[in-house]
Nucleic acid binder design. Structure first.
Length: 471
RNA sequence: GGCCCCAUCGUCUAGCGGUCUAGGACAUCACCCUCUCACGGUGAAGACACGGGUUCGAACCCCGUUGGGGCUGCCA
């Protein structure tokens, strides 16, 4: 096959704005991006909005924002397919003269009826109007006349050769009755005009690719290289669906996923580097990515594993970056006051917080006992963990009062001392006072937590706890 | 129903005819570390769908079966 190896790679990512941007689309976009960037090629963002009924402009913004957040940049676009309707129609009409297209006035019900009546095992359009030489009218669609014999081959970079007998390809619609262009037509015309070299998309498009190949041929153009990557599936092994599955990129952003972690995880769904390592930067992945090495079977999108990746990325963050990234999540809490003092405190808490969260959104819960003026202790938990130890708790309150300096080392020394004299292991001793001062059984290391909460509030909470136990 | 695609631990994968008593990661479990939790460390359990070939030799090649998925629109 003569191939344009010398010319630049031009790919396009072509979402239709019929819903939010989901992880499946993100992975397809990412693969396209890596394919283009590894050789200095161009990435075109094309919005496939030929179906005016289903598209909404706000989805376009959503897609662009989510892609930008992930770091998937585009060199051209977003180009609305709807802005090129005239060109699509013109190209479709040119096929009539070539004898490759014809008008058809069959209604869907008519076709179904005929199929039912005949012995035909296939269900699609039966070619009823092929030789009727209909004129254009408000009720006619324009169909492509698929050759009766022979077969059409799709040469796919990940699947290999896919051969389909032409008799199994229906005469598909090019132009609706209202003369608006349809997917395959618009796709092919735009790919030609935009000089797309590689069409990398999800496997769900494989069945209509022979139609595209036929069109390229009719237009006298060489088809681009195709690469159909497996779809992403849910736990029931069905293709991820915007409606059924909660997989919006934006939702993951809101939960506190880092774009780098998502990109890293997503890239590994269907592809892996030669040495099978998992943590890679976008640059490293781009350098090593190879479309031929993409797997052939669907991958389950495992949010748990992605969260693990996210935790690793969070822990690798500098304290400064962590504070910067976690601040928006803190600001969602009504107890958070964004003072310089609090930001400084947050910075000093960064390292012990980082290793306890796998999502940025988990940080506020951990930090609430320190920054919130008051805490809430669940009744059952209080009865179980706090009440039996009211004496101990009031004793600790006194010791806190007596401490020269209320910092972590002093607090630790004080509690270890108490542990030794009272013969209560530190691990047992910390439980009631932790619940009394934080409302939770687990959380940040107690000594640092107390230091940053401040002596006054800690003593206040300890006293309140011991008094509530007595009554 | 028809057409097409796919098939290694529960999941993501390594493996591209001999190095496989099948390696790694997530999840699970146990132990260690430890002020709780977490991080980290060590270890356990866990897979080549099945049947035929080809070959001295098959997870790797071929065929079939089974199972799964996608498409089947005047959606994309």
């Amino acid at each position: 096959m003569p191939q344009q190896e010398s010319s630049v790679i031009r790919v396009r990512f072509a979402p239709s704005p019929t819903g939010y941007f989901h992880v499946g689309g993100a992975r397809t976009a990412l693969y396209n991006w890596m394919l283009a960037k590894q050789s200095g090629g161009k990435f075109v963002l094309r919005i496939e909005d030929t179906d005016a009924e289903r598209n909404k402009e706000e989805w376009v913004d959503g897609i662009c924002n989510a892609m930008s957040w992930l770091g998937i940049t585009w060199d051209e676009g977003p180009i609305r397919q709807s802005s090129r309707t005239q060109r699509h129609v013109e190209m479709a009409l040119s096929l009539i003269e070539k004898g490759d297209a014809y008008y058809c006035d069959c209604r869907r019900e008519d076709v179904e009826e005929r199929n039912k009546a005949s012995e035909r095992t296939k269900q699609g359009y039966d070619g009823y109007c092929r030789e009727r030489n209909l004129e254009k009218s408000p009720t006619t669609v324009l169909r492509y006349k698929v050759p009766a014999d022979g077969s059409t081959t799709v040469n796919d970079l990940v699947r290999g050769e896919v051969v389909v007998a032409n008799e199994n390809i229906d005469d598909f619609v090019l132009l609706k009755a209202n003369e608006s262009p349809l997917f395959v037509l618009a796709n092919v015309v735009d790919d030609i005009d935009m000089e797309i070299s590689h069409v990398l998309r999800a496997e769900e498009h494989l069945p209509n690719t022979p139609k595209a190949v036929l069109l390229f041929k009719s237009f006298g153009k060489e088809a681009p290289l195709f690469a159909h990557v497996p779809v992403l599936v849910n736990e029931k092994r069905q293709k991820l669906s915007k409606r059924r599955d909660r997989v919006a990129v934006e939702d993951f952003k809101d939960k506190g996923f880092l774009p780098e972690a998502m990109i890293n995880y997503l890239a590994l769904l269907g592809w892996s580097p030669k040495d099978n390592r998992e943590f890679m930067t976008l640059e490293e992945m781009t350098a090593e990515f190879s479309i031929e090495d993409v797997g052939h079977s669907p991958s389950f999108f495992d949010e748990k594993k992605m969260e693990h990746f996210n935790g690793v990325y969070i822990r690798a963050l500098s304290d400064t970056d962590f504070v910067h990234l976690v601040l928006p999540f803190m600001e969602k809490s009504n107890w958070w006051e964004g003072s310089d003092e609090n930001r400084e405190k947050l910075f000093r808490l960064a390292s012990i917080t980082k290793e306890r969260v796998s999502l940025l959104g988990q940080a506020p819960d951990l930090l609430m006992p320190i920054f919130a003026p008051s805490i809430v202790v669940d009744d059952t938990l209080f009865e179980k963990e706090v009440s039996p130890h009211s004496n101990l708790i009031s004793q600790v309150a006194v010791l806190c009062q007596e401490l020269d300096c209320f910092d972590a080392p002093s607090i630790e020394a004080m509690l270890r001392d108490l542990s030794a004299t009272s013969e209560i292991p530190l691990r047992k001793l910390q439980a009631p006072i932790r619940v009394a001062t934080t409302g939770a059984k687990a959380g940040l290391p107690l000594f640092e937590l107390w230091e940053h909460t401040g002596r006054e509030r800690i003593i206040e909470r300890l006293i309140a706890a011991s008094q509530n136990s007595n009554s």
